[in-house]
Design a binder for these strands. Structure first.
Length: 574
RNA sequence: GGGCCUAUAGCCAAGCCUGGAUAUGGCGUCGGACUUCUAAUCCGAAGAUCGCAGGUUCGAAUCCUGCUAGGCCCGCCA
């Protein structure tokens, strides 16, 4: 087995071109690019830098290189096109690699070189909800990013620990509690229990408009809570359980589980000691009013940050500092990742700066994702104008059920709802994951719930179509094919796309760009569908059929790897 | 007042890290393809001053500067 990627091509060129321009510090792979889709070559070397050195026309240099270079056995062709030197990798190599490695194909470089890019311990913290209201679309994005990133690290053989932090105390919780005390009549949930709790949070915010005394009342409850008033604590435990029970149901729907769940209420005061211990640090100062502040302005060019209130009590960052140590102690991690929205960008810069300042120089990363808003504007949980996580799942599944029902009315109800669940979740997950996590986007409920175009079901459909061909074909799939037969333009494009999959996986991990995987799958499936409509697989020509079967088998393998990482199921029929 | 982010066809996005081939898809619009492996599909057409103005470069959507518009954030909330 042999790997041919950008690095391979760059190594090949560097060995043979004496004046190959080595621009400082770049990784080898950066000299080579993947040509645009319409160019039927796998890799390209642009000759402009050489042209500069040699003071010659890049077109001419490309032509000369084409003549001078002996084609290595892993390439079909080296071809000068304008100022570009293009390379085409042999189909045999690509298809054999995929067929032999199967689910491991996406990590072929590590696999073959056995350079065992050492397995790291990685802690990923998400979605860290407040326990006073149900999960909404923002949490859905958070969960999908966290889950997918975890899968991606796991796929690359890292040791991933998923942890969740329940923000289960504080004034916002007390507001829901107050509303329940006032208007709840001590009733039990008559609906999904976190929704039941959330209704009281909305109720509070409605009522506080008319009666601003409620504000004070909720502060009283907070005080009572902190004084460990038994009745308030009992109410708090009861409502928190309702909220968390509801969350767990939703986590289950997404297939998410955690290695450890932290509750803010169990340690929020513990950071205090840590801060006080660092008072000898010249940048951590006790002000005249007693508050402790981290001076970040001079050194870090960040606003100063209060670490402890003037009355000595802790604030949010106090416990986050403690939690950083706690996670290190619990997992001995190499890297700690926080999945948190971009409205907290500054907060995390400050948190990390403070941690560095007090000697906690661990590898920390804030994966900051953009907000989802609705066509009419921002979602506000206070006003209950959010897109609810459970509702959107249900809506997607219902619509998928209708679609399945329309196409295959004769199927059993059980089979219909099995497919509907799978397709509905695929649509929801893919819709959110195909966007760059860093950018904001607008969720238009009417247009978003679609099973056509750039969607999860489109990818699933592709998989099922391939499966259906396997069911019909009498030929055996194996590597004993005539690779020369795969010469149709659509086939060449497909093989080119298959070849770059491991590099996509590598880049996605390096830049935390998990959207690269859905984007890649879309292109792959578009190419497949285009191939499908032009090239008949099952055929009188047995040799051709065998060749094409192997090709689409490889497509199916890669789709499966990709969807697995996204937490999307494949269906053999749909 | 300061900081960060964003701006790509009617709409939604990819591409920006690492400058390179005619700016890539989808939705919508118009036209076409099911007696052939699943039409949740495919093919074709129309549709882009890549926010504006400069700069760097052989070459800029991509890098730099300024400007405009929008979003988010800015010491005792979480």
């Amino acid at each position: 087995m042999l790997i041919v990627d950008k690095t391979t091509i760059a190594e090949f060129l560097i060995e043979r071109i004496k004046d190959f321009p080595k621009i400082g510090g770049l990784a080898l792979e950066n000299y080579i690019e993947i040509p645009p889709l319409e160019i039927n070559y796998t890799y390209a070397y642009p000759c402009f830098p050489l042209a500069k050195i040699r003071k010659k026309d890049p077109n001419l240099i490309a032509k000369n290189l084409e003549r001078e270079l002996t084609i290595p056995d892993y390439l079909d062709e080296i071809k000068a096109v304008g100022p570009y030197l293009n390379f085409r990798v042999k189909s045999d190599i690509v298809l054999e690699n995929i067929y032999n490695l199967e689910e491991n194909y996406g990590k072929i470089r590590e696999y073959l070189k056995k350079e065992k890019s050492k397995s790291e311990k990685i802690v990923i913290e998400y979605p860290s909800p407040n326990t006073n209201k149900p999960l909404h679309l923002g949490h859905v994005r958070n969960m999908l990013i966290g889950f997918t990133l975890s899968n991606l690290f796991k796929y690359k053989d890292h040791n991933v620990f998923q942890v969740n932090l329940n923000n289960d105390r504080g004034i916002h919780i007390c507001k829901s509690m107050l509303a329940y005390q006032q208007w709840g009549n001590n009733t039990k949930p008559n609906k999904k229990s976190d929704h039941f709790v959330g209704d009281f949070y909305v109720k509070y915010n409605q009522m506080v408009q008319k009666n601003d005394k409620l504000e004070e009342e909720s502060k009283k409850i907070l005080k009572l809570w902190e004084d460990k008033d038994p009745q308030i604590r009992a109410l708090w435990r009861k409502m928190n359980k309702w909220a968390l029970d509801g969350f767990n149901e939703t986590y289950n729907k997404f297939g998410i589980s955690f290695d450890k769940v932290y509750n803010e209420s169990e340690f929020y005061w513990k950071g205090k000691k840590l801060i006080l211990k660092n008072l000898d640090n010249p940048n951590i100062i006790k002000q005249n009013d007693g508050a402790i502040v981290a001076k970040l302005e001079a050194k870090e060019n960040l606003p100063d940050k209060i670490l402890l209130r003037s009355d000595g009590t802790s604030i949010y960052i106090t416990q986050d500092i403690y939690l950083a140590y706690l996670k290190k102690q619990d997992f001995e991690y190499d890297k700690s990742i926080y999945i948190v929205g971009n409205e907290q960008d500054l907060y995390f810069k400050q948190l990390f700066a403070v941690l560095d300042m007090i000697g906690f120089k661990e590898d920390k990363y804030h994966l900051s994702y953009g907000m989802i808003s609705l066509p009419e504007g921002k979602m506000k949980s206070r006003e209950g104008t959010t897109v609810d996580a459970d509702d959107i799942i249900e809506e997607m599944e219902n619509l998928a059920f209708e679609e399945v029902n329309e196409r295959y009315p004769e199927l059993s109800k059980k089979e219909k709802s099995y497919r509907a669940k799978s397709i509905g979740m695929a649509a929801l997950k893919f819709f959110i994951l195909k966007y760059n996590p860093k950018s904001d986007f607008i969720f238009n409920p009417k247009e978003s719930i679609s099973f056509e175009g750039e969607t999860g079901p489109y990818i699933q459909y592709c998989f099922a179509r391939i499966q259906s061909i396997f069911n019909k074909s009498e030929e055996k799939i194996d590597l004993a094919i005539n690779y020369k037969l795969l010469s149709h333009e659509k086939e060449i494009k497909l093989i080119k796309q298959l070849n770059i999959f491991p590099e996509i996986i590598g880049t996605a991990l390096r830049i935390y760009g998990i959207h690269l995987i859905p984007q890649y799958l879309l292109t792959l499936c578009q190419l497949f569908n285009s191939f499908y409509s032009e090239c008949q697989v099952i055929s009188e020509n047995r040799e051709l059929e065998k060749a094409r079967l192997l090709l689409i088998k490889c497509v199916q393998i890669v789709i499966k790897i990709g969807l697995n990482i996204l937490g999307i199921e494949t269906l053999d029929e749909m």
